[in-house]
Design a protein around this nucleic acid. Sequence first.
DNA 1: TCATTTCGTAAGTCATGGCTTACTTATATA
DNA 2: TATATAAGTAAGCCATGACTTACGAAATGA
Lengths: 101, 101
Amino acid sequence: MTYEMKFEALASPTRRSVFEKLRDGASSVGALAEGMPVSRPAVSQHLKVLKDAGLILERRDGVRRIYSVDRTGLSEMRDYFDRFWDDALDAYKRSLEARDA
Amino acid sequence: MTYEMKFEALASPTRRSVFEKLRDGASSVGALAEGMPVSRPAVSQHLKVLKDAGLILERRDGVRRIYSVDRTGLSEMRDYFDRFWDDALDAYKRSLEARDA
DNA sequence: TCATTTCGTAAGTCATGGCTTACTTATATA
DNA sequence: TATATAAGTAAGCCATGACTTACGAAATGA
């Protein structure tokens, strides 16, 4: 659930493409695996990593498991880059002022 | 310079901590390596990955190389998560409407 | 209760990546 | 010109991680 885990989870291209499929709505493992160049167990393993990182949620529906984007975790990532942007911009402005001073 | 490279670049914890040091202002390789648990060449290699990904900029200053955050690349990451957030929220709202319909 | 569907887990393989030390290169300075 | 400083590069090691196939577990339905 840490930043660490989220960044690591999004590093793998196939895992990120699984995540991006969920951007358009919840889905089952089988449906996610369909059309992907890797096996269903591989997708299952990726889903576990994404879930442990707090990026997706899992719910049961009969024999299926439905995965969906965890908006809380997603918002953490958004905040990370928002803050990073603000801080970097501040630092840049300060460096300009120091140069002109 | 792709998303691919940016995500991969930010996956490594020590590499991300190098990136985060630059958030507070530009710095040389030696200054960045100081106090880190890895060697200076390791930091140098991380900087190359971050630079190739388009996340940092390099400029020469005599015998030193000064690295700084590339705000263009950073803003790409921010946009990625902003769009992802918007899309995921739309998909969620649509799923609620479909349920209530 | 037996078969089917859907999925997670185990175990093993293979490539990659993050380190290290040793070195080369380039700039500044005495 | 010789020396020192700063940093990139090469080569090699070792752990990790992204896969595969084979198997086990849980819910559904005949």
